[in-house]
Computed example of a mutant assay.
Amino acid sequence: MQKKVWFYVHWFLGLFAGTVLVIVGLSGAVLSYEKEIFEMINKESLVVTVREQERLTPEALLEAFAMAKPNATPSAITLFSDPKASASISVQGQGGGRNTMVYYMNPYTGELLPELKGRQFFRATLDLHRRLMLSEVGKQLVGASTIGLIILCFSGVYLYWGSIRRSLKKSLSINFKAKGRGFLYQLHSASSLWMFPFLVFISLTGLFWSYDWYRASLYTMAGVEMPKKGMHHGQKKMPKQAESLTEVKSIQKPVAVEGVTQAWSFFESTLSKPYAYATLRLPSSKGVYEFTYMDENAPHSQAINMLSVQMKDLKVLSHTRYEDKGVGEQILTSMLPLHSGEFFGWGGRIVIFLASLGMLLFALTGVILYINRRKKLHKKFLKPTP
């Protein structure tokens, strides 16, 4: 009786949450390789020809930008250690928040480079992945379906437990010579069993963005103070090349660039390790320059460090490094890389990518098995009694 109840729970959740899970899975698979796709379609903006001359100083880049865009006020400048990488300058538009424009410049000539392509597509894909493009209603549907996926995983193992107990090896294998319902059943159960730990992991990390109470509980368990809303750890924040570009509508006062190059030189002199990229927020507040940077061999894209410099006394006011944080804070900072598999290297990304694509396989095989079962029961019901 108990097994029958869990069988109906399993197929009910599969039927009603399956569509949402397929959408979330496929969009997640696309987002897994967002950075690589961006780099492939935007080489003319992200990659420049290396020249014999030295790259322009931060002040020179800002001055060149001011000449090209006199009505735009820079809010940040980002430079990369890679000599082939372009520089970028961020501009805060009206309304603040996400209304940020990022321009790309050749660090050798100060020339403005073309706008990135595909950014709107990936913004829409992320919105589809987290909210189904339905705002708060979609967010709740995704959250509920994610919880449903966890139940589907454990209920599936429970229903398949008899086969697992008899032979785990056979339960994990698929006989491709089998036909019909037998093949579909093996494909559905065996592939689900292979992906079981990864699907549960994706679900548990994905709930971080679905429910405030869940996120707050993780911070409480880790003993870490929860950042203000809109600035929580794990918020997707790619290097500045991956931002979008729009137009500034308002005329703003220019930012004084004097001292920026000196501040950057002092910043570089304080580092014990080479950096991959660094962003300087503008303008400085009372002579304080704030840098956000990533080490050259950082473990993942969220291993970000922050440094504040008081230029009057050439003094470091604060220096927060990812590697110096406690384990709990590192984990919470790394929620996005954990969710995408980036935290575990290229192998982890491939596994999470396949698990995300697997949502479609599980849904299709599950629906076909359900239809076949209904047809079988219908024929049995219509069969005349002797």
Rank of each mutant, 00 (worst) to 15 (best):
V47I: 15
G97Q: 14
T333E: 02
A363G: 05
T220W: 11
V50A: 15
K286Q: 14
R130H: 12
K325Y: 02
P83H: 07
V200E: 00
Y33E: 04
V102A: 07
S163Y: 10
E52D: 10
R373M: 14
F291K: 01
G156V: 04
E39Y: 12
S173Y: 08
P239N: 13
L245D: 04
S189L: 07
T292E: 08
L280H: 02
I202Q: 07
M101S: 15
R215V: 06
L62W: 02
G206T: 03
T220N: 12
L13E: 08
A178V: 01
L307A: 00
H319S: 14
L314G: 01
K375C: 07
N71T: 11
E136Y: 00
A72T: 06
P197G: 09
K117L: 14
R166C: 03
S265Q: 14
P58I: 02
E136N: 04
Q140R: 13
R166L: 05
T365D: 10
K35V: 15
V255D: 03
I41V: 13
G348C: 01
S32M: 10
Y185D: 06
S284R: 10
G326E: 05
D324P: 03
I352P: 01
I23E: 01
P74H: 09
T333I: 02
Q92L: 09
Y185C: 05
M359T: 11
S167V: 04
N42P: 09
G366A: 02
T365S: 13
R181W: 07
V91T: 14
A144C: 09
E52Y: 03
K84T: 14
M238D: 11
I352E: 11
T49H: 06
E136T: 09
K177C: 00
K273G: 02
M101C: 08
F291V: 07
V351D: 04
S250W: 06
M105K: 05
S145C: 09
S217M: 08
H232R: 13
E290D: 09
L46G: 14
N297T: 12
L13R: 07
T100P: 03
Q262P: 09
Y322W: 02
P83F: 06
P274F: 00
G345M: 04
F12R: 06
K3A: 08
Y103L: 09
V22K: 05
L31A: 12
L128K: 14
Q120G: 14
G110T: 13
W161F: 14
L116M: 15
K312I: 11
L134E: 01
Q94K: 10
W346P: 01
V257D: 08
G28E: 04
L336V: 00
S250M: 10
F198P: 13
G18Q: 04
A278C: 12
R131C: 05
M67R: 14
